[in-house]
Write a protein that binds this DNA or RNA. Sequence first.
DNA 1: CTTGATGATCTAGCAACGCTAGAATATGGA
DNA 2: TCCATATTCTAGCGTTGCTAGATCATCAAG
Lengths: 197, 197
Amino acid sequence: MGITERKGRERAEREHRIVATARAIAEREGWDAVTIRRLADEIEYSQPVLYSHFENRDAIVAAVAVEGFKDITAALRTAASESIGRRKALENVVLAYLAFAMGRPALYEAMFVLPTKLRFAEADTRPELQAAFAALAAVVKPFCTDVAVVTETFWAALHGLTELERSGRIRPAARADRIALVVRAIAGSGSSARARG
Amino acid sequence: MGITERKGRERAEREHRIVATARAIAEREGWDAVTIRRLADEIEYSQPVLYSHFENRDAIVAAVAVEGFKDITAALRTAASESIGRRKALENVVLAYLAFAMGRPALYEAMFVLPTKLRFAEADTRPELQAAFAALAAVVKPFCTDVAVVTETFWAALHGLTELERSGRIRPAARADRIALVVRAIAGSGSSARARG
DNA sequence: CTTGATGATCTAGCAACGCTAGAATATGGA
DNA sequence: TCCATATTCTAGCGTTGCTAGATCATCAAG
């Protein structure tokens, strides 16, 4: 009797459709357009059904954010693995990070700007978030001893560059210069402590 | 016949009260609590009066943000001027920036996080915003040639550190280490190009 | 002083929001 | 066939930003 299983699958699939629809609307029209009524319309169920899946609207945004962390982790890992040499890896990860943020502004917004209860750097941190952090740490590690601190600061620089550029507070034209600055700050200007990998 | 002038003064004073009230509510209870009805209540006028001063709610938030930029400019200037030596000035400005952001989260949110039409790095940039940028540039200038690029990157790092720590994504305990890292990245680890001031 | 126009202010209400109580419907075992 | 359970829906509450149209105060002209 796979009845319960079938119901469970259908339920899981519906939940996935909610998240996918929310993400699609947000990326096309912004998060303001993602209303419970609109989502209910698009998945062809009434509004209360959404609340049997998620506690409230924020929980839906958070679910999209978690998807975003999976995606960015994959993007950063690819950027690192396709690079030759640790310095190039560092640089390509920076480029990949900014490309991700600029290319999917709504997704990035869900991950970092909108009020969320997702926590980092704590015991209950979700694995998706830890994985993203680890992907950043991987390319930083060859250049330092205190990996955690450097990764956090590195990440802060990337996030700051993203937000300030996205809100028009720093000059887009100077992006490459700023990136070079960050890379040099971590990898050093000359050949680093040990020779190139 | 100062009638028109008196009316103008009263109007300006009422506008100031709106902004001050919005800021006060936001800092005490968060921006969600800043509703048009609430503001109308507190200034003892009806709601449409607010719309004779500001186009919409966002414009009120923006007005508070501009006040915030004046405040942070003052804080950064003080931190710099009270420091002995350019490296200490840089370090104290970093501390002042983070103290400002952490001490007035709602104000900082209005300045950087909430959707605003305030622009930077453009012709129509408001003087308050330029002044804040200049205050950061002042302490960076002794350590580099391309002041604009370094200031933008410096600012991005500060903003990133602020946001990631405020949203619980990096460890508060490691703040001092991260700050040291940023300061060293700009000022250099040993004595900088020229001797200390 | 009265009148009429102008501008300032208010009352009342619209449409949309997140969310939920309670009715209606479908499901599956006795 | 009947009932209990679980699922889904209808309808609506309270709140939001914002606005049309009524009301009121002000002041120059007659």
